[in-house]
Design a protein around this nucleic acid. Structure first.
Lengths: 188, 188
DNA sequence: GTTTTTCCGGGGGCATTCCCCACTTGCCGA
DNA sequence: TCGGCAAGTGGGGAATGCCCCCGGAAAAAC
């Protein structure tokens, strides 16, 4: 990490943060396939600054996702703590589907990263399928989920449903309904 | 229709056919978002000829889909004739998902067309949800499908699953398994 | 065979995006 | 306070894709 070698120059840190917030805002409006130069413009920095900090789109995406994913994981903890295995899994799937929808083409990128170990997004995104596996295992143990399905299959199903939720512009109730229908096969 | 007014010049018909076959081949390899100029090049015609025949990408897509959709519908007839309502619907969903996967971003385009009445693809693609509705109604009537789901929801679910099948590069058994899992909620 | 009509075609303009370069800025430590 | 050097800047090249223009050629009509 660069931060361990030297405490990073103040303006450099400022610019990096500005890029991250601009990217987060732009992604929500235009999707994750938006122009990178546009993000730099919005952040008020030169485009070269953006490319130096984040050589590829996936690097930027991974950095922006960090905090969102951390939030999602605490939500998962909360669900696991307050609900039974079946409801916790069901709620988590709905929650995850709804969150992934926010950056419109995110499922597309996550799908690409999921089977590409070299992707810069892999380390950032990996906790999502992992945590899904934990909740799934608990539901299996209590007999609430069928044994013959893997965590990857469930995660991929969520990505597909999230794609649909975005593409058909569901509101939240519609999305919950769509997820309930699509994931019914998971539950025993 | 243009063909009713005048029998179309021979070379024009030749070029149009060449464009359609080139488009079909290119779509399978590079997906439906490929370069249109590339299709013209492959067809051995100038790009202007392509744009004259098909002003937009959707026009071309609609024309190329015509025959494929006709094939799919005869398959649906066959299924309805030889299987019970439940199996006919289940097989149709698997078949449809697998077919849509062939042109990689086709679900993306169909999703856009599905809620846009002005889309040139609408007339060509509409039989798909319509036929799905027929098979669903039969399954509902025999008590094999839950009553509280609409044909549109089922169709959209198939589009999402087809997206996943393409994106995760399923072979046919894996795709059938994925569809079976994702559509389990439809069946009573 | 000639005229008329229709259609072809490839070059090029325009827009978009990614990314690199030479030059400039301004922070940090002595 | 001040100089060195890390970091920033933004114009522009390169690649790509869409689409239009207009001279020319081929097919149809006579």
């Amino acid at each position: 990490m660069a931060t361990t070698k030297r405490p990073m120059r103040a303006d450099a840190q400022r610019n990096r943060d500005a890029i991250l917030t601009a990217a987060r805002e732009t992604f929500q409006v235009e999707g994750v396939l938006t122009s990178l130069d546009g993000i730099a413009l919005r952040a008020g920095v030169g485009n070269a600054t953006l490319y130096r900090n984040f050589p590829t789109r996936d690097d930027l995406l991974a950095a922006v996702m960090q905090t969102s994913i951390a939030d999602a994981l605490t939500e998962a903890d909360e669900l696991a703590r307050t609900l039974g295995p079946r409801e916790a899994l069901a709620e988590w799937l709905k929650h995850l589907t709804w969150q992934l929808r926010i950056w419109h083409d995110l499922p597309y990128c996550l799908a690409a990263a999921h089977h590409d170990d070299a992707s810069p997004m892999k380390p950032a995104a990996d906790p999502l399928p992992a945590r899904t596996g934990v909740l799934l295992a608990a539901a299996k143990a209590s007999g609430d989920a069928t044994a013959d399905i893997t965590a990857d299959e469930v995660y991929e199903l969520v990505l597909a449903l999230s794609w649909a939720v975005d593409r058909f512009q569901d509101d939240e109730p519609a999305a919950r309904r769509r997820v309930a229908m699509g994931t019914a096969g998971i539950f025993a």
